[in-house]
Simulated assay, not measured.
Amino acid sequence: MRLTWDQVFAWRLRRQFVAPRADGVAEIVGRLCGVQAQVTSAAEMAVALRSSAPRAGALVDELNNGTLIKTWAMRGTLHALEPGLAADCLSLLASARTWEKPSWQRTFGASPDEVTALTEEVRRVLDGAVLTREELVDAIVADPAYHRLGEQLRSGWGALLKPLAWQGAICHGPAQGTKITFANPAQSIKGWPGIPEPDVAGPRAITAYLGAYGPATPETFDAWLSRGSLRKTVLRRWFSELGDTLTQVEVEGRPGYVLTEHLDDLATTEPSTAVHLLGGFDQYVLGPGTNDTVLLPGDHRAKVSRAAGWISPIVVSAGRIVGTWDLTDDVVLISMFDNAPLPKGLDTAVTHLATTLGRNSLLVQAQ
C-alpha cells in the first residue's frame, strides 16, 4: 500500500489527540507512549493541549496518586508513563545492559557488579519508604562500600540511578516542595506488573509505538527508545514475530510498518490543513525523532533541537513543523521557518493555547 505524508501526518495528529482531543490524562499518556517529563511544565502542557477539558496540575495529580509512573525511560530521559508500557520499555532498556560497557564504567565510575549490588541496596532502602535524594543517598553511603559513589548518586542527571530504574528498583515519588523523591514502583504504583522478559515486552512496546507514530521502521523505534542501543537482530526478530499484526507500507518512497488494524483508517484519512501550537519536548516530534526531515526540515532542525537537549515549542501546519514559538507575558512570539508568513488558522491555535493556559486571550507577534 502506498500512502502520502499528508495522510500520515493527519492520521498521527488524530491518533495523538492533537485534534480531536481526549477526555482523560491516562488515555493521552498511554496513547503517546509516555510524555517526556524532564521539565514538568512541558509534560503538563503536552497533556493539557490534548485535553478536551484541560486542568492545571492534572498530570502531576495522576503521578502523585500512582496511576502513572515517572521514571527514566526512553533515551534515558524522565518520562511520565502508563505502568504497563513503562514496565515493557524498562525491560528493553535494561536488556541493552549499557552499564556494562567500558565507556559507561569509565564515565560513571561503577562496575557491573557494583550496579548489581547497588540495585539490591536501593530496593532494601526504599522498602516501605519514600525518600528525598538526600535521604536516599545518605542511607546508601552509610555503607562504606558505596562512599566513593556518593558524588554520582547526588548528581541531578541520575546517571547511576538509571540502570536501577530500568530494572524496576526505583522510580520518582511525589515531590516534597521543590525536592524530588524516590520510591519502589512495586509499592507506589497502582497495577505495577513488574519487569517482564524482553521477548514479551518487545512486541508490546512496538505495537504501542506504531499505534501513535507509524509508519515506522525498526531503526526508528530503536532511536526513539534507546538511541540505537538494542541488538539489531533481536529488534528485527520482534518485528518479525508480530507477523500479520503488522503490514509494510510505502510513504512516498519510504518503507515502514503500521498496525494492520490501522490500514483502512490510514488509507481513507484526508490531509489536514489545521494549524497547531505544541509545547516544548512534545511527543509529536520526539516520537519520530528530530532527524525526520519530512516532518522537520533538516536545515531548521537546530531551531527545534537546541543545545543541552532542549526541544522548542513548535508550530505545526498541515502536520509539518513550520516554525517555533515562545510565550512572553501575554504575547505568543512566532518564528516561522524561512520568514514565511503566519499560516492561516493560527488564531484558532492561539485561542486553544490561551484556554489551555487559563488566559482570556493571547496576542500574536511574528519574529
Results as ranks from 00 to 15, higher is better:
V35E: 01
I321N: 07
R12M: 04
W238I: 01
D347M: 01
R15E: 15
V60R: 05
Y209S: 07
V200M: 05
P83K: 05
T40H: 04
L342V: 03
L149R: 12
Y209D: 11
L63R: 00
A223V: 07
A58N: 01
Q176P: 00
D282H: 10
A10P: 13
T324K: 05
I321H: 03
I170P: 09
G358A: 06
T132V: 02
G323V: 06
R204Q: 11
A80W: 06
W224D: 07
H276I: 04
E261L: 10
P163L: 06
L266C: 06
A73E: 11
R148V: 07
L342W: 03
D88M: 08
G177M: 00
A267D: 12
T351Q: 15
G156T: 10
L3R: 01
H262C: 08
L131P: 04
G173R: 00
A274H: 09
G256H: 02
E134T: 10
D88I: 09
S226K: 11
Y213I: 02
K344Y: 11
V25C: 00
R227K: 11
V364G: 04
A58G: 05
T220G: 14
V47Y: 00
E120G: 02
R204Y: 10
E114A: 09
R359E: 12
S229Q: 15
D61I: 00
W104N: 07
V249C: 03
L225G: 12
R236Q: 15
S335P: 11
G109T: 13
A96H: 03
H79T: 07
K101E: 14
I140G: 10
H262K: 05
A139G: 06
L81N: 13
L153C: 08
T290D: 06
D265H: 13
W310Q: 11
A366P: 04
D199H: 05
E121K: 03
G279Y: 12
